[in-house]
Design a protein around this nucleic acid. Structure first.
Lengths: 342, 342
DNA sequence: TTGAAAGCGCTAACAG
DNA sequence: CTGTTAGCGCTTTCAA
């Protein structure tokens, strides 16, 4: 039925091994045989069975991409497609395929990763997130399976190759910018002790306050959990605004959320930036089109993915590659959502 | 090094085939042996090599997902992550993995699909788009390789299983809504004769005009090509607004674009909906937060993906499944971006 | 420069 | 209920 290397061999009057050598363009096969065999392959419509090949050469030429949670609304944030675009670009360049995790819960994802690894579905893995207590990372480390992470590993960073933004310093910069504009009551929306990037950002936020000798106020820190649901978020926001020293500036986890709040503020008669200054993260296209256009941090998501894939492929091609950290600089993009405190 | 079925067999004092049977929970193996073998597997940390398994059973339990163009900005539109979320959900339910295309050009994608198919990387394919002259679809059809498409195939629809919105009728409804509000000069932004969904929508648009006995005006149809670039888009828009009978209502390819235009209009002093009514497609979360909130069509992207995967898996499990069409109804979500023509 | 043979890790008749 | 045997389609020594 399906045509194999044997059929080609027979039709070309050579042995299967010769055909195999032609496929890999082995130097010690005469041009003549090569041409003949290639002709036959063409004629018969032969295409190698990569499965079988993988089994013997022990490599699949595919990389596994693990998302935090494929089933959640999280994916509405363009972070994911954009980072995937970066990964794709680099993978394609090296003829690697992409195998995607589908798990919804941490347990599911873990099981999937084990399948990818032990089932030899992939040669290496890219983790698209980093949490504080990550079993998957530990498993991969223990198995000595090649992987890179987009984000900063909470533990064992010296043994892991990862690509990350300078989340702490960029958030410090953002916060300082707000402080320089005269703001002292600065809220931080979307704190989450589970994900490392948030921890880093919160640290930068605190550093900026400290340097400016502004007291840290726990009330100004709004956990992510309160912001998932629209109702809850608006409720929480009202509480925040009802505070005696209500914040006049917001540092917000991502642009998506920021844009939602801008709209909410518009609807309840609070003006941005006159009453409240805001800055988001990710610099999505829509920042430019919000009302007012949103000041944001470009974290170069595409490059994050590109470099993540690049490092992994490097490791795959040369197993001796040492762990390293690549830092993609973030960049504030000034638009119209911040102004001096009046 | 890596532990195989043989090692387990030896350690458990049974034959490899018995171990294999235990893995697949074969009914004719005694509970006792099963338990013993399982114990050994646990102990040794055995995990089956799916690669080898695939080779003999001729199935990979993975589905290939083909995107129009992984490298383009297209992906900023949340369509892609959302449809993928639907696919993931169904795939996971049936323990299928996902293999993603990475190609940037049509040729690259074609080659990749051939690799997936002939290289036995996947059991079936989901096409996330449908274009008028699609070589990939033809190839798949010719190879009799299982696939489904999200969208309506331009040709051979009777031989293909696909899941689609009722793009024609929903766009007719949208347009009629605008007509009912008194609009006669209605523009259609984002026409593209390459993609079938746009063709269908344009058809619905025309039907509505015809029924209302409004003459079709070519000037009101703006091809997608003009809208990719921001500069170009705004240029084109100005031309459109400079027309003697300038349009008072817009039907817009997707919400993303619509939100951009709302912002543009705000910036040049055109009011939505007072001066211009707009309706978009996809009903992304941000519709609610645009200014004004955008009337849109919910095309149920998640379900599109879910059903696409469902049909494919069905075909995979039962090869005799006949081709069918599944229609996911679209739904207008009325917000504040349309009003009666004054 | 090429062929023969062994084997990657697993499954599936066919026996027993 | 379980073992033996023969492959799946390919690569890779080892010989020639």
């Amino acid at each position: 039925m399906t045509i194999t290397i044997k059929d080609v061999a027979q039709a070309a009057g050579v042995s299967p091994s010769t055909v195999s050598r032609v496929i890999s363009d082995h130097p010690r096969i005469s041009e003549e045989t090569k041409n003949r065999v290639r002709g036959v392959m063409q004629e018969l419509g032969y295409h190698p069975n990569l499965q079988a090949r993988s089994l013997v050469v022990r490599s699949t030429e595919t990389i596994g991409v693990v998302m935090p949670n494929s089933a959640s609304k999280v994916l509405e944030d363009p972070f994911f497609p954009e980072v995937l675009r970066g990964i794709s670009t680099k993978a394609r360049e090296h003829q690697f395929g992409i195998y995607l995790s589908t798990g919804a819960t941490e347990k599911e994802i873990y099981d999937e990763v084990v399948q990818m690894v032990q089932g030899r579905r992939v040669d290496g893995i890219i983790l698209l997130y980093s949490r504080t207590d990550d079993k998957i990372m530990k498993y991969l480390l223990e198995k000595k399976f090649p992987f890179t992470v987009v984000g900063r590993p909470f533990e064992n960073a010296e043994r892991i190759t990862f690509v990350d933004n300078d989340n702490t310093s960029i958030t410090k910069q953002v916060t300082t910018h707000l402080i320089d504009l005269g703001h002292k009551e600065i809220a931080f929306l979307g704190a989450n002790t589970e994900f490392v990037f948030t921890i880093d950002r919160l640290k930068g936020y605190k550093q900026a306050l400290e340097e400016a000798q502004i007291a840290f106020n726990e009330d100004y820190i709004i956990p992510d959990a309160f912001l998932q649901d629209e109702q809850l978020a608006e409720e929480k926001m009202k509480q925040l605004l009802a505070l005696p020293n209500r914040p006049t500036a917001f540092v917000i986890k991502d642009d998506f959320l920021a844009i939602q709040f801008i709209s909410f503020f518009n609807s309840i008669g609070i003006r941005v930036p006159e009453d409240i200054s805001m800055v988001g993260f990710n610099n999505i296209t829509l920042c430019e089109y919000s009302h007012p256009p949103l000041t944001s941090v470009d974290i170069h998501i595409f490059r994050l993915g590109l470099e993540g894939a690049n490092c992994l492929i490097e490791m795959l091609k040369n197993p001796d590659t040492l762990p390293k950290r690549i830092t993609i600089p973030g960049q504030m993009i000034y638009r119209k959502s911040c102004q001096e405190k009046v």
